[in-house]
Every structure is written in structure tokens, then in C-alpha cells.
């Protein structure tokens, strides 16, 4: 019977990404008696990674090759396809990341395996694997299942599980693999985002706006309010997509991660990709006209109302009080 859980070690520019430790922690908690947790290291040189993973898995499988210097989904797929076929794990775990979105679906096709992407939880049943996914912007949960006899692939939202230090001492196995040359897709280079004038990661107070501000013209009201409390203005992705604020103001998985003392979220629904960038703020206040908006699940304080009414009222209140204080 299949029992092992494989975790793909995700690394970029020489660093193992946090999601890997989250997945390994979860895998250790889930693996059943007789099964092993495997960390799969694909790299040009794996020594550095192995060192950091020794306590985290029962076994480390390391494949080293020039071709693995940068992430390339097709080379990754060749090796993963081969080791999953040979070693028959119960589950292969990925994080729901940009690398995974580029590899897991086609790997599943190649191996003819069931796959569920973007889960927030999973369970191992007698003959089925169950997952829980957030759908419809986090307002509904779906429970999916697939038969476990041939194994399967799951990707998990980053930040769902907390990484804990493991206390294992992994057996290390290095394998060589001969790659087929890929000629139709080539990695060229990394492209860094252009740095802007304002670094929101350094801000102590942030007023963040989402699609709920409706029109670009409403930005002025927000900027006035932010200024009145000494905050910088940040935003969710749709505001950047619309070109209303520059990319460096975006909070979330494909933007910046911030940890200010105060985060005021205005007209932001609270999708996973946004929350991951701001949930460690000390105090979170959300204004949203939808009482069911997922942002209220993470905020400390909330107001269910139209932000265009609340923001001017807030600014007025703060100006009045501050004048009264200084008078």
C-alpha cells in the first residue's frame, strides 16, 4: 500500500522558500505509520539545501544537474515523473505557487493522476483522499475527493499551515538522472520589478484600497484621509491592473508583504492572495459593504458600510479631535 508523502522543495536564488517548511511540517503530521516523508531536492548543487532539510524529513532525495539551476517546468516534470512512477508515493505535495502552477497540472496529466490545486486542508481516508478548497473568493468551501490507490497530487495555499522545526535526521539519497534536452522552451533571465519611490514594507500605517473604491477619482479622498493619519496608500491587485496605482503599492502574494502597526482595508474582499501579504499587521480595520466579505475573518475591527461615506467621516472626526487636542 502507498504510504509515503513527497514534498517538492521549492527554492529560488539559493533560498528554500517558506512554503516548503510549511508542507514538510504538515506532511510529518499526516504521514501514517510505516510511511515516510520525502523532501525532493532538484538543484544544480543540493548540499546547501540538504543541510537545511535534514531535520525536516525522513528521507531526502537529491537530483543534481546543470539543467536544474533555474526552475524549468519541463525539466522538473521529467525528474518528478520518473521518481513518482518508480517510488509510488501516496501523495505528492506542492505549494500553490507560481512554480507549481507551471508544473503540477501537466505532471498530473503525464502520470495520469488525480490532482487538486489550491487546497487549505486535506485528509487521508481508507481508500480516498479528501481536500478542502476555498472557492468563490473564500465565501464557500468545497470538499473534493479522489481514490488513493494510484496516488495523487495536491497543492496547498501558502501560509495555511505553520512551519515547525522537525526533529528527524534524514537519510540522504542522491540519484543521477539523464535529461532529454528541451529545445522549445528556454529560461532567459530573472526580471526584477522596478523600485518605486515609496517602500510600503517600511510603513507603520497603511491605508489600502481595493476594487470597492470603484473609480480612480475616488483616490483623492483616500489620499487625504491617509495623510491625515500619516499613513501611506497601498492597494490590492485590481487597482494596479487598472493602472490607478503603481505596482510597488500592491500588497499580496504577487506584490509586497507588509507588517505595519495599522492596516486599514477599504473595499478589499480579502482573497487568499491579498491576505497573505498583510495578515501579520498588528491592528487591522476593514470597511466593506458586504457583511460576508472574508476580510472580516482576519480583521480586528470592521465596519459594514460604504467606504465613500465612512472615509470622509473618519477624516473629519480625526481632524476635529486633533484640533481639539492641540487647542
Amino acid at each position: 500500500m502507498r504510504k509515503d508523502i513527497f514534498v517538492l522543495v521549492e527554492h529560488r536564488k539559493g533560498e528554500i522558500r517558506d512554503i516548503t517548511f510549511e508542507l514538510l511540517t504538515k506532511a510529518r503530521n499526516m504521514v501514517q505509520t510505516g510511511g515516510f516523508v520525502y523532501a525532493i531536492v532538484l538543484a544544480k548543487n543540493g548540499d546547501n539545501f540538504i543541510e537545511k532539510l535534514k531535520s525536516e524529513a525522513h528521507r531526502i532525495l537529491c537530483i543534481e544537474n546543470e539543467k536544474l539551476e533555474h526552475f524549468h517546468s519541463d525539466y522538473y516534470q521529467q525528474v518528478l515523473g520518473s521518481i513518482i512512477t518508480d517510488r509510488k508515493p501516496l501523495l505528492t505535495l506542492f505549494g500553490q505557487t507560481s512554480y507549481t502552477m507551471d508544473i503540477a497540472p501537466s505532471l498530473a496529466v503525464q502520470l495520469d493522476l488525480p490532482i487538486v490545486m489550491g487546497c487549505i486542508e486535506f485528509e487521508i481516508g481508507d481508500d480516498k483522499i479528501f481536500t478542502i478548497n476555498q472557492v468563490y473568493g473564500g465565501k464557500i468551501h468545497t470538499r473534493f475527493s479522489f481514490p488513493s490507490k494510484n496516488g495523487g497530487i495536491i497543492s496547498i495555499q501558502p501560509g495555511t499551515f505553520t512551519a515547525e522545526q522537525g526533529d528527524l535526521s534524514a537519510e540522504i539519497e542522491r540519484i543521477t538522472f539523464s535529461f532529454e534536452e528541451i529545445t522549445n522552451k528556454k529560461f532567459i533571465q530573472f526580471v526584477e520589478a522596478v523600485a518605486g519611490e515609496i517602500d510600503i514594507t517600511q510603513a507603520e500605517k497603511i491605508v489600502a484600497i481595493g476594487r470597492g473604491i470603484k473609480e480612480k477619482d475616488n483616490l483623492q479622498i483616500i489620499e487625504d484621509f491617509a495623510e491625515s493619519i500619516g499613513a501611506v496608500v497601498a492597494c490590492s491587485r485590481p487597482i494596479v491592473d487598472a493602472g490607478w496605482l503603481p505596482k510597488e503599492r500592491q500588497v499580496g502574494s504577487s506584490g509586497k508583504t507588509v507588517k505595519p502597526k495599522l492596516y486599514i482595508a477599504l473595499g478589499i474582499s480579502g482573497d487568499f492572495q491579498h491576505l497573505i501579504g498583510m495578515r501579520n499587521a498588528d491592528t487591522i480595520i476593514a470597511v466593506n459593504k458586504d457583511p460576508n466579505a472574508p476580510i472580516f475573518g482576519i480583521a480586528d475591527y470592521g465596519i459594514v458600510d460604504d467606504l465613500l461615506k465612512i472615509v470622509p467621516a473618519l477624516k473629519k472626526k480625526i481632524m476635529e479631535k486633533c484640533e481639539a487636542r492641540s487647542a
Binding site: V135, I140, S145, G302, D305
Partner: peptide, 28 residues
Amino acid sequence: KVHTEKMYLPPPGDTAEIFTGNPEETAE
């Protein structure tokens, strides 16, 4: 290959303390 077992509303978790009242009152 994957079946939907069920859909449900997420169990209520921790939620924010909600301020009620008119804008003037919530602003306060």
C-alpha cells in the same frame, strides 16, 4: 478524476468586532 463531495458555507471563525451605527458614530 476528482469528485465534489459537498459545498458548504465556511464555519464561522474568529471575526472582527463590528462597529455599528451611522458613519459619524462608527468614525468615533
